[in-house]
Design a protein around this nucleic acid. Sequence first.
DNA 1: CTAGAAGATAGAGTCGGGTCTAGATCAATA
DNA 2: TATTGATCTAGACCCGACTCTATCTTCTAG
Lengths: 150, 150
Amino acid sequence: MDLSIGEVAQRSGLSVHALRFYEREGLFANPVRRLSNGRRIYYEEDLEWLAICTKLRSSGMSLATIRQYIELVRQGPGNEHQRLELLRRHERQVEAQVQELRETLAMMRHKVRIYEEHLARGDADRLWNPSRPDAPQTGAHQECQPPEGA
Amino acid sequence: MDLSIGEVAQRSGLSVHALRFYEREGLFANPVRRLSNGRRIYYEEDLEWLAICTKLRSSGMSLATIRQYIELVRQGPGNEHQRLELLRRHERQVEAQVQELRETLAMMRHKVRIYEEHLARGDADRLWNPSRPDAPQTGAHQECQPPEGA
DNA sequence: CTAGAAGATAGAGTCGGGTCTAGATCAATA
DNA sequence: TATTGATCTAGACCCGACTCTATCTTCTAG
């Protein structure tokens, strides 16, 4: 049931290079064990952790922060409050992120709708045109318009 | 009503360095105008665009993609379908991102809840401890556990 | 026995997105 | 007049997160 680095790479979606890199960076709770010939061996649990790791990464947690967390884990019992703190802090960041993304989506949808309306009416060319600064602006949003007669 | 680079930096939250960098990278629809003495002048519209730009960036749009968009704008009317396409593509990416963040949040909340329960019951020390691989596991999630004995 | 695939290490290189430095110019102020 | 502070350019540098290279060892199949 032991896994080679190649298998772990395949199943985790990380490259073998990245796995060695993560190890150097101290992102595994337990030192990765080796076979007598020096080759790394991994277990299912490592894959589970890597899956979590990947989620944390993709939600914007830095490797440095992941390392902090795993260091707490490595130290063993007694620091659960700190782990909790760390997780909660990231939770709040992710929430903020989601909030910001929502706003961005709203903005983009607005922009898209404006374009669509104009395309539908066939007057999309009256949307802002930098080379014709005197063209009438159609509200919405003028991209990035030169001032005045320009 | 003209703005110096310093004012724009303050109001946009970008550094003056970043503003010059963005300009070099072609992220402004119109070449930034200069005073006779060579100093850049900006207008309110530039600030509006920078605000949008910043939102796009923070939602993960790369500078390269922003440049693509602004290039379409620069080319003037006739390519609205392409602009729309580009915005929609990003919209879909942002939606996917929100989805992933939600999953991450769910995972983290689960983890946090487990920690809290154990802390409340005062048996947090039975959560995984790498140096005591024979400690009983409390379901949930074993961080990154050595095999067997485990 | 040999070739080829997989793994190991150390360290260099890449890429995105800025940031910073040096040296020059210019404007307003003490 | 001299200094201070904002600006300019060109280009070097940085950081995070990998990725790749060179060189060596080891395992597996034919």
